[in-house]
Design a protein around this nucleic acid. Structure first.
Lengths: 173, 173
DNA sequence: TGAATGTAGACAGGAAGCCTGTCGATGTCA
DNA sequence: TGACATCGACAGGCTTCCTGTCTACATTCA
């Protein structure tokens, strides 16, 4: 991001556009199946939910966000009947978040759509290119981090430890 | 996004993580150079700003967001001395947004960092893989859109035309 | 066992980024 | 000139996160 004017799109822009397209597609599909209240951010819940139940704290940790933020997402989904909170059997402080039937439907839809999209991509690019894409995307975070470090930029490491963090540490766990 | 639990990360997740890394890196670099008030969203301004001045409406159109949202970003940058608004010479309704010296500094920093990051990536992946990555990222939006259309999902096309739009049409221009 | 300390999750408040709706001033075109 | 489009401003709202703080409960260790 940030550039001159109408130059060949840089990797940041390409990433943003690709991500937006994927998100839109998932959300549109869910809306079509009657899950209009599920928004992109709720992926952070469904994606990290165990069938056996997961605490908000653990969900937050997995999703790299604060417990408060995660609690909000879970609250929304609970109000709309996608998850329920049941008391933890051994830890009386905790509540386990469980997907309901409706929530499981969302997970199934998403679990089917993701491979469909990836298959399309694999079909278009060829299996080798597709695997390369996955691998290379995975490499970006570390490349960028190293690149910045070498250049004297601190990216979410020491800096976070200095300023006080909230209840939970999002990012740079 | 949306999946089971700890499966191989899907393309959505990879995209999100890569984008976050790139954004963080740019922002960290700018902060280091004294531009701490510049946030990722402001890329939408700098990226589309002409040296000769650009109206908020045009910026909004280029960035695919509403004029109101763009006006907010421009307002923030103006308050911090990164851009200024001067009256348009022929259209008395309009104001031209111009980068100040400070704003130009941001653009320069970003314009230098982007290639640096891309060079690192090119170095690591090899030039062929790198170009493939760019090409394939660029292909994702259309692949995803087609994929969904074939499956009966509407992704920001007809749907937008039905419901009334705001002052400006963001996305699916 | 009892006190120190850590952790789960709730409530309050706020920043950021975007959106819709509406309006007055101005431009454009029949 | 009058209908209609456009520029940018004000008001208000939603979503997604964050920080700070608090109580209830768990764990650990002297």
């Amino acid at each position: 991001m940030l550039g001159g004017r109408e130059r060949p799109a840089n990797v940041g822009v390409l990433l943003r556009e690709a991500l937006a397209a994927v998100n839109d597609s998932v959300i549109a599909r869910l809306a079509e199946r009657g899950h209009g209240v599920v928004r992109p951010a709720h992926g952070a819940v469904f994606q990290h939910l165990d069938d056996t139940g997961t605490t908000v704290s653990l969900l937050a940790e997995r999703a790299q966000m604060t417990k408060q933020a995660m609690a909000e997402l879970v609250g929304h989904l609970e109000r709309h009947g996608y998850v329920e909170r049941v008391p933890h059997h051994t830890d009386r402080r905790a509540k386990l978040v469980l997907p309901t039937e409706r929530g499981r439907d969302v997970i199934v839809i998403a679990q089917r759509l993701a491979p469909q999209l990836e298959d399309r991509l694999r079909e278009l690019l060829g299996p080798d290119r597709f695997e390369s894409l996955r691998t290379d995307l995975q490499a970006i975070p570390s490349v960028v981090a190293h690149s910045s470090a070498d250049l004297g930029v601190v990216v979410g490491t020491e800096a976070d430890e200095v300023r006080g963090r909230a209840t939970t540490t999002p990012r740079s766990a």
